[in-house]
Computed example of a mutant assay.
Amino acid sequence: MAPTVLIAEISQQLTTAFDQLDGWFAAPAPLRSYHPANGGWTIDEILEHVALTNHFLLILIEKGTAKALKNAHGLDLATELANRQSVRVRLDEINQPGAFKWMRPNHMAPQGLKSGPQVAATLRQQLQQCQAVLGRLPNGEGVLYHTTMSVNDLGKMDVYDFVYFLAKHVERHLGQIGQVVAEYRS
Rank of each mutant, 00 (worst) to 15 (best):
V119G: 02
G98E: 08
N95T: 08
L21A: 11
A2C: 01
E48A: 09
V170L: 00
H173Y: 07
Q126R: 03
L75Q: 11
H173R: 10
G155F: 06
A29Q: 15
D19I: 02
G23R: 11
A51S: 14
H35T: 12
D158N: 14
V151P: 06
L91D: 01
S186Y: 10
L166W: 02
N38S: 15
N152D: 15
L21T: 08
A99F: 05
A82I: 00
Q131D: 01
L57E: 01
D161F: 05
W41S: 00
T16I: 15
N83H: 15
L91E: 02
M108N: 00
L113Y: 08
E93P: 06
T42N: 04
T16M: 09
F56K: 01
Q176T: 12
R88I: 15
L91A: 02
G135D: 11
N54H: 14
T147L: 12
I59D: 04
G175K: 13
W102M: 10
R124G: 11
H146I: 00
A8I: 11
G98Y: 01
R185F: 12
L69H: 10
T16Y: 08
I59F: 04
G40H: 09
P110Q: 02
H173I: 07
A78T: 12
N139E: 11
K70M: 00
T15E: 15
N139D: 14
A29L: 15
Q118L: 02
A51V: 03
L134C: 08
V50K: 09
F162D: 04
V181N: 04
A72V: 03
Y164G: 01
L127N: 08
M157V: 14
K70D: 12
L123Y: 02
G98S: 08
T122D: 11
R136N: 13
F100P: 05
Q176Y: 08
Q13D: 15
E183I: 07
H35L: 03
G39L: 09
A2Y: 05
S115H: 00
V170T: 15
K63I: 10
T42W: 03
V5E: 14
G39D: 07
G74I: 12
H173W: 09
T148S: 12
G155A: 06
V180A: 10
I59Y: 05
A68G: 06
L166H: 04
R32C: 07
V50P: 07
R84Y: 05
V180W: 11
V87Q: 15
V133P: 03
A182H: 11
I61E: 07
K156T: 00
T65S: 14
H55I: 02
L174S: 03
L58C: 04
N139W: 05
F56P: 01
Y145G: 03
G40S: 10
F165E: 04
L134A: 06
G175R: 14
S186F: 10
N106E: 12
N139Q: 14
G175I: 10
L137F: 07
V119N: 05
